[in-house]
Design a protein around this nucleic acid. Structure first.
Lengths: 147, 147
DNA sequence: CTTCAATTGTTGAACTTTCAATATTTTCAA
DNA sequence: TTGAAAATATTGAAAGTTCAACAATTGAAG
C-alpha cells in the first residue's frame, strides 16, 4: 500500500489557496465600493498611509501599501497628475523622495474611508464579530511568524 | 468632541489589508519554491485541478484557479505550447472547451506538489499546527459567508 | 420551427506590472 | 579624503492582465 502523503491534497485545502481565495473575494467587494469614486484599492491605501500628514519615502510607502517599487512609482505618477499627492525631495537624504497628501487627496480619502468602513460593517454582519476579530488576530500572527 | 468612528483606523487593522498582506507573503514564499521548476503559482493550480484526469471547461477552471476568463485563456495558450495540457471540444456542448492534463503535465505536477508540501510544512513549523488549522477553518467560513 | 436571448470562449487594443539597467546620493573603509 | 559599495528612486522594454467586442452554440418562448 502506498505511503499516505499530503501530495494529493485538493488545492482547496492549501493555506496558500484559501488565503488567495479569501483575499480575492474581499478585495473584489472593496473594489466595487471604491469604484464609486473611481479609485483602485491601492490608491486608497496610499492616501490612507499619507493621511497622517507626514512625508513618506517611496520605499517606506511601497512596503506599507504592498506594491513593489516600480509599480508604486508609476501609480504615484498618476496620482500626482490627479493632484491627490505631491513629491518633495528629502532635505536630509537627497536620494529620497518624500510623498505628501494634498488637500484634494484628504477630501477624497475621507470619502473612501467611509466606503471602506461600510464594507467592514457588512462583513461584521454576515461573518460575525467574534470570527472577524479572531481571524484578524490569526492573520497578524501568521505575518509575524513569516519574518 | 468629535464622534468616535472607525474612519481613522490605521490601514493595518482592516481585514482587507491583513488578508492582502498575508496572501502576499505566503504567495511570495510559494512562488519562490515553484520557481525552481520555472512555473507560476497559477499554473500549479491549473495542473492540480486537472490532475483528477477529467476534462474541465474553461469557465469551471477559471473559477477554480481564481483567474478571470481572458487571463486563463492566454495562460492556457502558453501551457498548451509547453505541452502541459491540451484542449478538446466538449461533444455534449460545442460551445465549451474541455481541458485535460498531459503526461508531461502530470510529471511536472508531482514535482510541484512536493515543493508546495514543503512550504506547508515550513508554515506548520513556525506558525504551529493549531493556529494553521484554525486559520484555515476561519478562512473557509469567511468565504462561505461571502456568497 | 424560428427567432431572439443567454452562455461560452477567444481576440485585439489599452493599460498595468515587472525585470533589468540606470542615475543619483550617501556611507564607510582604507 | 577618496574611491568603492550600498541605498534610493526612476525608466524603458517586455510581459501580463483587463475591458469591450466578437463569434459560435445552445436554450426557450412565441
Amino acid at each position: 500500500m502506498a505511503k499516505p502523503t499530503k501530495a494529493n491534497t485538493p488545492i482547496t485545502e492549501h493555506l496558500a489557496y484559501l488565503l488567495a481565495q479569501a483575499n480575492r473575494e474581499i478585495n473584489r467587494q472593496l473594489e466595487l465600493r471604491l469604484s464609486k469614486e473611481g479609485v483602485p484599492v491601492e490608491q486608497w491605501r496610499i492616501l490612507k498611509v499619507l493621511s497622517d500628514g507626514n512625508g513618506h519615502s517611496m520605499g517606506e510607502l511601497a512596503e506599507a501599501v504592498l506594491l513593489n517599487h516600480p509599480t508604486l512609482t508609476k501609480m504615484i505618477d498618476r496620482m500626482v497628475s490627479d493632484t491627490l499627492v505631491y513629491r518633495l525631495q528629502d532635505p536630509n537624504d537627497r536620494r529620497k523622495v518624500l510623498m505628501f497628501i494634498s488637500d484634494r487627496g484628504k477630501v477624497l480619502c475621507k470619502k473612501l474611508n467611509s466606503l471602506a468602513v461600510d464594507q467592514e460593517e457588512h462583513i461584521l454582519e454576515s461573518y460575525g464579530d467574534k470570527s472577524t476579530s479572531e481571524l484578524k488576530r490569526l492573520l497578524e500572527s501568521l505575518i509575524d511568524s513569516s519574518n
